[in-house]
Design a protein around this nucleic acid. Sequence first.
DNA 1: GGTTTACACTAGCGCTTGCTTGGTTGATCT
DNA 2: AGATCAACCAAGCAAGCGCTAGTGTAAACC
Lengths: 201, 201
Amino acid sequence: MNVVNESPRRKELTRLAAQLFVQEGFDRTTVRMLAQEMGIKSGSLFHHFRDKQEILAAVIEEGTQNALALARQALEECGDSADERLHAMARAHLQTLLTDRNAHVVALYEWRRLDAASRDHLSHLRDAYEELWERVIDEALEAGLIHGDRFLVSRFVMGALNWTVRWYDPEGARKPEDLAHELVAMITTSAHTPPGQSTKV
Amino acid sequence: MNVVNESPRRKELTRLAAQLFVQEGFDRTTVRMLAQEMGIKSGSLFHHFRDKQEILAAVIEEGTQNALALARQALEECGDSADERLHAMARAHLQTLLTDRNAHVVALYEWRRLDAASRDHLSHLRDAYEELWERVIDEALEAGLIHGDRFLVSRFVMGALNWTVRWYDPEGARKPEDLAHELVAMITTSAHTPPGQSTKV
DNA sequence: GGTTTACACTAGCGCTTGCTTGGTTGATCT
DNA sequence: AGATCAACCAAGCAAGCGCTAGTGTAAACC
């Protein structure tokens, strides 16, 4: 058994699994379906993963790691103003949500199918990501860019963003950057800002 | 078979099913588990429901009907101002989300497990509900209470609200009305709210 | 040149699933 | 007193499930 390593083959299989999990749901996706999609027989699957659970964990881990990396990068590359950092986070969030869409949909919908051990491990990853958000929200609060309870605001914002996977159409006219801009405009107290930056109350 | 009617017994069974579906997920909930929770044998279940799918549809229909009724009532009872109507909708939304929590969580997470026929029927119900929201959002836009794209704003708002089922703790200090107030305060351009509470820890 | 490793195969075990069948019960109605 | 009917039960079927065991094979390593 392979199981521990992160072979490129395993990564490819994980990507395919994510797609099937989205299409059918975790429980309805059988190891035989997974194997067929991967072009191998069902028994061969267990060379790459200890069991079906581990495939689910791999899918979610992959997506979350990418999101975390992208968000960190975005924060490093953007300017120092609270406004810019807020935009950067929103843009990064929506970008992963769309490029790694399958993995994130799985993380959203199938989280509870994880066994205790995987859930524990992955929730640490997720917490690390959410901490990034809360820090940026805090900065925006201090800068007077937004107002309200930091806990509630960050929850509302993440809800609004995560909900996009349910209705966003990648083929449509709206681009991820447009969504990010509109979302930030909605929550900042500085009224409607068509082109440039925003001012304060 | 019963199947068509809406006997009180069936309603009670639907309530129990909702609870189990939340606990275990639809696919993992077996008809035997459902039957045991209901104090009957698995075969008897099919006297009340044509098949397992129909139980899921019943759970979701129940929740959505209640939400629709409550929202309509809230809009009738509240004042005419855009602000009041926005508050009323948010409050009503959060109220159903909490009183009928199980049914709504099921609707959120297990929507895709519905067969085509049920999905079609139920999506009409859901559309009716979302139209209420969009109308109120439109009024708020016209009144200058909020700004932005009507489609995006209503999506963001519903996302923020629906996401609450993932983190809201009914035992905690925050009341549904507080959440509603904070949400409305966040999206309205009129800065941080004058009366009552704006921040809470 | 022999051994190890990675990856795939076939065959099938033991168990659970949604659902059906045929029949029983007890209350209500005529 | 007889008929009706919703509500339930015991038993079980056919299909499908995750996973294991054992084997084959080509490339990589010593």
